[in-house]
Amino acid sequence: MKIAIASGKGGTGKTTLAVNLALVVPEAVALLDCDVEEPNCHIFLAPTVDRSEAIGVMVPVVDPDRCLACGSCSHFCQYHAIAGLDTGPLIFPELCHSCGGCVRVCPTGAMSETTREIGLVEEGWAGPVRVIQGRLRITEASSPPLIRAVKKRAPADGMTLIDCPPGTSCPVIAALRGVDFAILVTEPTPFGLHDLRLAVGTVRTLNIAFGVVVNRAQAGNRSIHEYCEAERIPILLEVPDSRQVAEAYSKGLSVLDALPGLRGDLDRLYREIKIRVGPETGSEPRECPAPRQKRSPDQPAGRDSQSQS
């Protein structure tokens, strides 16, 4: 079963919930940190990394001996990643989406593909939790290929928790795709409610079952409740606002210790989600013909190492 923890805006407590849920789950659990621009789960869990792999994407290269400088490749590219000069194409790999179109339209076969490293996927154990995280290279603009690489490394069985990046655009979609359930974390402020609405729109567009966790809940503030009642969205858990929690979090300490009732709450949350998802409905095979051989854009860059770092 795959559960994603998401929110419209950052700083709502998404990572804290994901980490502590991973610590409470009574079965084999993998925690995927898909917030590859700012991966933070490792700060709280300190996994011993036993596997680190460079992730690359396919980018074109030109063989100048075969190139006629006809401009077909640059004309085809939708991402302005190729300048068609009269001396031949000039490639800007950081703008490439790895669609492979330029290679196919080249009339002389002068274009081929090579891999370009965009980041790392690191795996390690933190106690019983398998932590898998992506780390985007700084100045790298596009994270979805790295997010997909992280998700590919999730174990087939057991429980997988996915800490999503914030927002509603391509990186979040890449992280949410194919999960069985999404937990949307929010807080009872005008910003929180506004961003919850966006997050709800996203999971509904993707047709994913979901529920809400209210973090920093304040007695008397019912704005999130009113919205969820009107939209028939289940509120799965409320975590009270507390300076103690904020301080424990700031020190990287376990929130489970700072808030004694939380362990039981998370256990109930986990069991409720299991009931909502139902017995293995998520892995129901889709009706489709046998898959044909596919060319994948997200290929390892070939620096697969069993490093102890």
């Binding site: 700012e38 700084i138 020190k251 990287g252």
Partner: peptide, 16 residues
């Protein structure tokens, strides 16, 4: 903000 997450992210953002 004074959290380990923010400290970590701060380092990445000032590299940018």
């Amino acid at each position: 903000e004074p959290t380990l997450s923010s400290l970590h992210d701060f380092d990445r953002v000032i590299s940018l």
